[in-house]
C-alpha cells in the first residue's frame, strides 16, 4: 500500500432508488441501496467489497464508475469530483476506469466478433495505435491467455472461462488505472475460477492496476485483496487490512460471515462451533433503525436500537461500526452510555 493520494475516494455516498405507486408514480418510499459510505482506494492495491445479496455492493461499484449517479455524497477519482459529472465529461475518464462484469454470457454482444468487442474501446475513444487496432487487440488477447487467431470468432464459440477472459481483455484495452470487478469469478467452475483469479493477479503486477473486487465469496476476496470492506444493508460495517479483518474481525457480522463459510476439512468442520445467525437480511426498503444489524445480532443491547454506531478507527487502519466490537485492542473500549430512558 502506498502513502500517496488515493486514486478513488468516496465520501458519504448514498443511492436511494425511489419506489413509486399508482398512475402518477407517486413516490411512496425509497430503497436505500447505499446509505452513506466512505472509503478510499490507493494506487496499486486491491480493495475487496463483500456482503450478502442486497447489501449494496454492486450498486457501490456502479456508483464509483458513474454508471449510476449518487443521490448524495461525493466520489473523487484522482482528486477530481465526478459525482455529478455529465456523460460527455465522463467519457475521457472512462479510459482510466473500467468494469468487469459477473456474467460472461450476457455482457458480451453475441453478434459481434471477439475482435469487434475488444476493439470497441479503441474506436469509441478514438485511440490511435501504432500497428493498427487489430494488432493491439491480438496483443491483449494473448496477454489474457487467449489465442490471437480467434480474433474473428463469436462469443458463443468460447467456454465460460474464456468468455470471462474476453471481458477482461476488453477492460484492459485502454490500459485503465482502476478496474472494478463485480463478481468476476462467481459464474465459473472451481478449476476455472482459480485460472481467472491468477490472471487478475498477474495483470495487476504487470500493468500496475488498481482493483476494487466485489464478491460474495469470502475466500476469493481474502485471496485477492489487500484491504477488505464488509457491507451490510447499504453500510460499511467494517473495513481493514485483509490480515486484520480475517484473523481478528471486530464486527459481529464479520464474525458470523466468516464462521458460516463451510470449511473443506471434514474433521475440523465437525468440531467447529458455528455462530448461527437467525433469519434473513432485512429488506433495504425498510431497514432497522440505528445499528442495522441489531435484529440479528447476539450482542445487541438497548443502545444498538437507538444510536447508530459510527465507523470508527479502533486499530491502525481498522475501522468498525459497532457499539460492542470483538477483538478490540486494549485498553478495552468502555461500553458507551445508554441514553437516558424517556
Amino acid at each position: 500500500m502506498t502513502e500517496n493520494e488515493p486514486l478513488l475516494s468516496v465520501h458519504n455516498m448514498e443511492k436511494h432508488f425511489p419506489v413509486t405507486k399508482g398512475l402518477f408514480k407517486r413516490q411512496v418510499g425509497a430503497v436505500k441501496a447505499v446509505d452513506g459510505i466512505s472509503f478510499e482506494v490507493y494506487k496499486g492495491e486491491t480493495l475487496g467489497l463483500v456482503g450478502e445479496s442486497g447489501c449494496g455492493k454492486s450498486t457501490t461499484g456502479r456508483l464509483v464508475t458513474r454508471l449510476l449517479e449518487p443521490t448524495a455524497g461525493k466520489v473523487f477519482f484522482e482528486g477530481q469530483d465526478i459525482s455529478h459529472m455529465s456523460q460527455g465529461h465522463l467519457r475521457p475518464l472512462r479510459r482510466d476506469m473500467q468494469m468487469i462484469f459477473q456474467d460472461p454470457y450476457s455482457s458480451l454482444n453475441p453478434r459481434h466478433t471477439v475482435g469487434a468487442i475488444v476493439g470497441a474501446p479503441f474506436r469509441i475513444q478514438g485511440v490511435q495505435t501504432e500497428h493498427g487496432v487489430k494488432k493491439a487487440v491480438q496483443d491483449i488477447l494473448e496477454r489474457v491467455g487467449l489465442n490471437p487467431e480467434h480474433y474473428n470468432r463469436y462469443p458463443h464459440e468460447f467456454s465460460g472461462g474464456q468468455r470471462q477472459r474476453i471481458g477482461i481483455a476488453r477492460t484492459l484495452a485502454l490500459k485503465p488505472k482502476l478496474i472494478i470487478a463485480d463478481e468476476p469469478v462467481s459464474a465459473l467452475d472451481v478449476s476455472i475460477q482459480a485460472q481467472v483469479v491468477n490472471l487478475l493477479e498477474d495483470l495487476q503486477k504487470e500493468l500496475d492496476l488498481t482493483y476494487v473486487v466485489i464478491a460474495h465469496d469470502l475466500s476469493v476476496v481474502r485471496h485477492i485483496s489487500d484491504r477488505v470492506a464488509v457491507m451490510y444493508l447499504g453500510k460499511i460495517v467494517e473495513i481493514a487490512d485483509r490480515k486484520q479483518l480475517y484473523s481478528s474481525p471486530m464486527h459481529p457480522y464479520t464474525n458470523a460471515l466468516l464462521s458460516a463459510v463451510p470449511v473443506p476439512d471434514p474433521r475440523a468442520g465437525r468440531g467447529r462451533e458455528r455462530i448461527r445467525l437467525t433469519g434473513d437480511v432485512p429488506s433495504p426498503l425498510n431497514p432497522p433503525p440505528a445499528c442495522r444489524f441489531h435484529t440479528r445480532c447476539w450482542k445487541a443491547q438497548d443502545i444498538c436500537k437507538k444510536v447508530e454506531p459510527p465507523l470508527e478507527e479502533l486499530a491502525g487502519g481498522h475501522r468498525v461500526a459497532c457499539h460492542f466490537p470483538e477483538n478490540a485492542p486494549e485498553p478495552a473500549k468502555a461500553a458507551p452510555a445508554v441514553p437516558a430512558q424517556e
Binding site: V190, A194, S219, H223, V263, P264, D265
Partner: peptide, 8 residues
Amino acid sequence: LGSMPRLD
C-alpha cells in the same frame, strides 16, 4: 483442492 482459496 488446489483451485480453492481456503479460509482455514
